[in-house]
């Protein structure tokens, strides 16, 4: 330590730097702890969205089948072609139902068409919901 005022200031700055370093360490610790807590909380959240997911998926399969068969029956009714349109749309409906489920499971979201989700903001399942 020098006795000049300049020297003292230098010492002070070193002290401040030390304190800053300490503060940085403290902040890092707090941050790590918060991250650990978040990780701990994550399974619970995945259960919640997982349950939501399970609720979603079963009906998805059936509803497309119902809509498909319904369209077929209506077309038959109008055109008098019983039962051909019903049979055709029954198959199309079941395909649509399976595609619905496939898309949801693969994380394509609920979009129509085979569009993989490119931006992450799109996906409610991959990201933990805050």
């Amino acid at each position: 330590m020098t006795l000049t005022s300049n020297g003292l200031i230098v010492v002070h700055e070193n002290k401040n730097l030390d304190q800053l370093g300490l503060l940085g360490d403290k902040l890092n610790k707090v941050q790590e702890e918060a991250e650990r807590k978040l990780e701990k909380a994550a399974p619970e959240q995945s259960i919640r969205s997982g349950l939501g997911f399970a609720m979603k998926i079963g009906v998805e399969l059936i509803s497309a089948l119902i809509v498909g068969t319904g369209i077929g029956l209506l077309l038959d009714h109008w055109l008098g072609t019983t039962p051909w349109f019903m049979l055709l749309f029954f198959v199309l409906g079941s395909v649509a139902g399976i595609m619905n489920v496939y898309r949801s499971v693969n994380g394509f979201g609920n979009t129509i068409g085979f569009h993989p989700i490119t931006d992450s903001k799109d996906n409610g399942y991959k990201k933990p919901l805050k």
Partner: peptide, 26 residues
Amino acid sequence: PPGVSVVLWPLMIPIEIISYLSRPVS
């Protein structure tokens, strides 16, 4: 659906429409 050849369009478009119409039902 993108990436599907034109030959398959008559098959894919009805499926997509059914898929879309099944939304309110589900």
